[in-house]
Nucleic acid binder design. Structure first.
Length: 282
DNA sequence: AAAACAGGCAACCGCTGGCCC
DNA sequence: TGGGCCAGCGGTTGCCTGTTT
């Protein structure tokens, strides 16, 4: 970005007395209270009416990315990461479109995740993050590990008797040449067809009948989740085009619901081991 | 203990398209 | 039809914080 343009914008903001930079608690409160009482409406009007010295754009961004009550914060779950990988393979950098499939997550958050985590992994392999080679690497190594994490988390967090049992499932070894199959989510969700309208043939998604989606990190239990009242509910995701949630059925969970105390932060894990890196660097 | 560095993320920017007059 | 306004989008920047030296 040219400095001259930046300077111009900055001066323009200053000339009309608009604030920039990080939001204060007071500003957050003003904006939140105003929107809760009056709705979103026109953002420039919102900014003025709420008594904020911000432009409408800034208010909109702050509300949508931070203040909105249904925003989910915290690390992305393996399920969400899988979905992002899948959807990005279909749509590329269409962050807002991808965000529609991750309730409570913002396009900004997903974009940041991609740029900081995914592109970092690509750099480790010394390949372009949008290249076929990188997608191959993701399919062969990253996805299986995410699934492994999901299974481990599910196992760790389920069933009280298991929590007392120090043994763990043996780590599954995923061979990149294995015939493990992944079912295209688009075959079950019309809204997820490829951009060109075809059904996907090279997607990352595991079989939906075995993998839970949109697990709340704080309420995982054996492939299901507890609502705030502690009641069990099955996992699902929101399909914007159909304006409905889909659910992962066939769960033979008991009715007792236990909230997991901790959730392993899989986003910090390196997705490749040394062998993987050598294989893709040759 | 302090400086340097790196990573994460909130916030900004310009561009685009839709709507209205 | 064209100009102005606005919302939404994706790209980029820069600050803050944690880690390393």
């Amino acid at each position: 970005m040219e400095d001259s343009m930046k300077t111009k914008s900055f001066k323009e903001s200053e000339e009309v007395g608009l604030r920039r930079g990080p939001w204060t608690l007071e500003e957050d409160t003003l904006l939140t209270n105003y929107i809760l009482h009056n709705g979103e409406g026109r953002w420039n009007l919102v900014a003025k009416s709420a008594g904020l010295k911000r432009n409408g754009k800034s208010c909109r961004l702050r509300w949508l990315n931070y203040l909105k009550p249904d925003i989910r914060r915290g690390n992305l779950t393996p399920q969400e990461q899988l979905l992002i990988l899948e959807l990005h393979s279909k749509w590329g950098n269409r962050w807002s479109k991808i965000a529609q499939y991750l309730p409570g997550r913002t396009d900004n958050e997903i974009k940041n995740y991609w740029r900081t985590r995914v592109q970092k992994q690509a750099r480790q392999l010394n390949i372009e993050s949008n290249s076929d080679k990188f997608f191959d690497a993701v399919r062969s190594f990253w996805v299986p590990r995410l699934i492994e994490k999901m299974e481990q988390n599910s196992f760790t967090n389920c069933c009280p008797q298991n929590n007392n049992n120090k043994s763990r499932l043996p780590p599954q070894s995923y061979d990149s040449t294995s015939t493990q199959t992944y079912t295209d989510i688009s075959s079950q969700n019309p809204g997820l067809s490829n951009i060109d309208g075809s059904s996907s043939s090279s997607t990352f998604m595991p079989d939906l009948t075995t993998v839970p989606y949109f697990i709340d990190p704080n309420t995982i239990i054996d492939g299901s989740m507890c609502n705030q009242e502690g009641n069990y509910q099955e996992l699902g995701g929101y399909i914007p085009e159909m304006e409905e949630y889909y659910y992962m059925g066939n769960s033979d969970i008991g009715t007792e619901c236990h909230v997991a105390e901790a959730y392993e932060d899989v986003t910090q894990d390196p997705m490749w081991n040394v062998d993987d890196i050598w294989q893709f660097r040759e």
